[in-house]
Write a protein that binds this DNA or RNA. Sequence first.
DNA 1: AAGAATTTAGCACGATGGTGCTACAAAGGC
DNA 2: GCCTTTGTAGCACCATCGTGCTAAATTCTT
Lengths: 209, 209
Amino acid sequence: MPKKVDPEARRQEVAEAVFRVARRDGLEHASLRNVAAEAGLAIGSVRHYFAGQSDIMIFAMRHFVDRAGARLMEHVRDRPAPDAPPDRHVAVFAAALAELLPLDAERREETEVWLAFTVSARTRDDLRPYAERLYDETRDLIRKVLAAAERSGALRDGLDPEVETERLYALVDGLALHGVLQPGRLDADAMRATLHRHLGEIMPRADDR
Amino acid sequence: MPKKVDPEARRQEVAEAVFRVARRDGLEHASLRNVAAEAGLAIGSVRHYFAGQSDIMIFAMRHFVDRAGARLMEHVRDRPAPDAPPDRHVAVFAAALAELLPLDAERREETEVWLAFTVSARTRDDLRPYAERLYDETRDLIRKVLAAAERSGALRDGLDPEVETERLYALVDGLALHGVLQPGRLDADAMRATLHRHLGEIMPRADDR
DNA sequence: AAGAATTTAGCACGATGGTGCTACAAAGGC
DNA sequence: GCCTTTGTAGCACCATCGTGCTAAATTCTT
């Protein structure tokens, strides 16, 4: 037998190459040849682990959604003790939401990949299920953040949970979109300031202006 | 001479064909051949009005930005009399911002095209200037909306204009993004409700819940 | 009616893309 | 040492794409 190779690890390496190409040149340039070159592999080698080109895309997107989704779920676990002061809660909420913004290099990369895939999925049936899953999971995270805020007493009274969920979700994704598309006009500090402004408004005791 | 043809009108027809292809199949499928077929023209015919493929893209995006920008600017003109009641002002603001959301078929189409171009411009130097222009113009519209709200007395006191501009802008674009990418999960009413919720918060007298 | 310019049509070439298929290399079991 | 399995490499084919170029069709002007 040849070199022992973990096929799953190989596939993930290829997926990483897809991400790099998508970020640098756009997802439309993630051809078999370009991806193989980016991964430092021969075309035939890549094809040994994937049935075809669309399988690469599907795997890459699934891999991305899995990773991002898992990391989001960690934030649902790592919530502070119920009797912690509201300020502490708000800080944890802000950290969870910051995970969705391109605030540093790593999260910028992830946001760029997210945008490429999620937009592509609009016109690609084979990718849409994963985009929907990520959308639902993210929305769920935000809903849970708001629910936790309410339980901890940090949240303002009289807010409609559904509307506030969509409002916060839209705000975060809008910031992410702007941060990725116009990096020169919206830097990390501005994104943070905007997010904190919003949180300060719906969680008045944490008004940190 | 052959049929008298207005070259500019022809170019715009081609641009419209680009929009249709981009919405249906994605901008990456807006090839010379596909666009020509969509426009009901022969390839050579299209090429008579454009120097090359990238010129088509550039013209199409410029055409889109011009149209969208002009329509946005109309809303800056059509503001109510300064002495109109604040509620009237808020209604006008909401109408201006609704122009940016996929609330009906026409604006949905426009939002889909906007997303395709604006995302593509991230990795295409030749399109980026137009994306930046549209970004700036839209941000300006929102800044002006907030400034007008302040003058009319509808806006809450003590708000930072820059932060509120970015917050409202991110909210609107986030809603537009979600509305276009997840049409089944965020309908027009939900978008309207979310926008009005936000406006009601920063313009307290128009609280329409 | 004739000529001329504009518009339309399309061939041909090279580049790039996905994919079927074959050939070779490597390494563990016998 | 040999064979079998797994991984690597790549050729060949067809489709699509942009583009240079040529040719035909059309209709206005004279």
